[in-house]
Design a protein around this nucleic acid. Sequence first.
DNA 1: GATACATTTCCATTTCTCTAGAAATATGGA
DNA 2: TCCATATTTCTAGAGAAATGGAAATGTATC
Lengths: 118, 118
Amino acid sequence: MEKSDAVTALSALAQESRLDVFRLLVQAGTDGMPAGQIGERLGLPSATLSFHLNQLRQAGLVTFRREGRSLIYMAEYAAMNALLGYLTENCCQGDPAGCAVGICDPSTLIDAKEGIRQ
Amino acid sequence: MEKSDAVTALSALAQESRLDVFRLLVQAGTDGMPAGQIGERLGLPSATLSFHLNQLRQAGLVTFRREGRSLIYMAEYAAMNALLGYLTENCCQGDPAGCAVGICDPSTLIDAKEGIRQ
DNA sequence: GATACATTTCCATTTCTCTAGAAATATGGA
DNA sequence: TCCATATTTCTAGAGAAATGGAAATGTATC
């Protein structure tokens, strides 16, 4: 992961509404959640929500698919894991004994056990 | 960890110079590094560096101690671990099989193996 | 094609953040 | 006490981000 990508992802999460949205989508799992439902749950006007969803999308932290009239947003677990990896990358002078990298991906549990980063 | 604390910590890290400073201190370990040396390494004017160090300090991500004329800054590993925990907290609907929380602390390797969060 | 619905884009306003020179503060040594 | 060093606080200007109403876009249904 590049430094600029990390800053973009951290900036995207460093805002109360967006952190709420992201965590909601992390909870929602691979099913995702339509934009309208997100706005309803968090009490955000549609234009405001759309702005924040766009920020999260440009940071690579969420993706979406269309289903009828709705856009279903879902968390991008790989991006979250890459960010966690970046933050802990230089930790403990590379000693794995004191440094366990967090991995979280409901769709690839097998990969998670092997470790995503090589 | 409170949501507002998480936003503060993420905001602190969501800036190129501060991310550089934090990672440098994570590398430096418990010895820490004097402010002057940080500024020299990253090419930051003293007032600018001081502003960023203050942001990191207010976010609880770094602490400092005085040694003679120098202020030695060091990473607060517990705060970083708390943030990683917060981001992955609602992951995988609580299923521990797909969700391992990252832990990193050179000074408490034993605690790390037990897991810091209860 | 007309209408309803879901969501986005446009826009202006307000608010927060970054930057770095200059002055102030704290410490140590002559 | 006086000077050098290390770092902070003060300050103001420039730039970026957040907000939400109104209008536009895309999709489905009749």
